[in-house]
């Protein structure tokens, strides 16, 4: 049986609702895509003739270029649209933009938006496949998939691992998608954050919550750090960078509480000296650059899987 037979969705709006089998099938396919990017002829033809639009309402060099490369390596025509504040100021709504693009008959729409639920709203209004590339503090499913692929390559499995997700859980879509994915795959998930950055009822998502890094990291196989936005200081969530780094930044002393072979991850872009010590960010246990490579592979796998389910495929 082809691994793709188990993934028959039209959109990827979130990790929520995906089965372990669907996730495994995407990761297996991604594993095969890694080779494509490593060879000289980095090209497949599965998206030949297809149009992919990357619609980014929030700037993101990393995610946008990853989706662009993934699409191009599969043979799609890729268009990047960065919708800045200007269109929003002109009064054009998300739905207006979606309807305009829909009329241009794309096959796949990759969307990043600052509002939770934006990808869901778009999917209701357009006829093509929609991939959520991050919606507010809701989900960022391809990030969770690439994180899972990276972990699996180092630990050979996800089930039974202890993963500590640390930092601004409250405002993080990366945290939500990772919690959902790791939970489905049978990992033990911990979240570590100052109480002001911990969302209400987080325990209902099947995680164990810690405010102390040392306790949260004790015996962890994977340490996943999150970016802290500078705006959090202005909004009175945390007092200062130096206090945050002292209690919640990942340094050698705190990392020593995790397992000796624990890997360190970060979705990027990093604030060195805020949530992570540069020594660790660029050290031997960091797999942060590998995450970027896996990002392209996972997105190729996803695009290929969705393309099989497009009309006339």
């Amino acid at each position: 049986m082809s691994t793709l037979a188990t993934f028959s969705r039209r959109h990827l709006l979130g990790i929520e609702g995906l089965s372990a089998l669907e996730i495994e099938s995407l990761l297996d396919l991604a594993e095969a895509e890694i080779g494509v990017s490593r060879q000289i002829e980095k090209k497949k033809a599965v998206l030949r003739g297809r149009t992919q639009i990357n619609l980014f309402f929030e700037a993101s060099t990393r995610t946008q270029s990853s989706f662009e490369l993934a699409g191009k390596r599969l043979g799609a025509d890729v268009m990047n649209m960065s919708v800045g504040a200007s269109s929003v100021k002109k009064g054009e709504t998300l739905v207006d933009t979606a309807m305009t693009l829909n009329a241009m008959r794309p096959d796949i729409l990759v969307v990043r938006h600052h509002a939770a639920g934006a990808a869901e709203l778009l999917a209701q209004k357009v006829e093509c496949s929609v991939i959520n590339a991050g919606d507010g503090a809701h989900e960022h499913p391809t990030q969770a998939l690439l994180d899972a692929l990276t972990i699996r390559r180092h630990k050979d499995r996800l089930q039974g691992l202890t993963v500590a997700i640390c930092g601004d859980i409250r405002h993080s879509r990366v945290a939500r998608s990772n919690i959902l994915l790791l939970h489905v795959m049978g990992a033990e998930v911990r979240v570590v954050a100052p109480s002001t950055l911990m969302p209400a009822s987080i325990d209902r998502l099947g995680v164990e919550a810690f405010t102390d890094m040392r306790r949260g990291l004790a015996g962890a196989d994977v340490v996943m750090m999150l970016r802290l936005q500078r705006e959090r200081m202005a909004a009175a969530y945390v007092p200062s960078v130096r206090e945050y780094f002292r209690f919640h930044g990942l340094d050698c002393e705190k990392l020593a509480f995790a397992k000796p072979d624990a890997i360190v991850m970060h979705p990027g872009p990093m604030n060195r000296g805020v949530e992570i010590d540069p020594l660790i960010a660029d050290g031997a246990r960091s797999v942060i650059r590998e995450q970027v490579e896996m990002g392209v592979a996972v997105r190729m796998a996803l695009l290929e899987a969705l393309a099989r389910n497009l009309p006339n495929a």
Binding site: A116, H138, R176, P199, A200, I202, R204, L205
Partner: peptide
């Protein structure tokens, strides 16, 4: 409303 539903939806409560 603040709580589990808001947390799941990624919406501020």
């Amino acid at each position: 409303n603040e709580g589990e539903v808001a947390t799941r939806l990624g919406l501020p409560g």
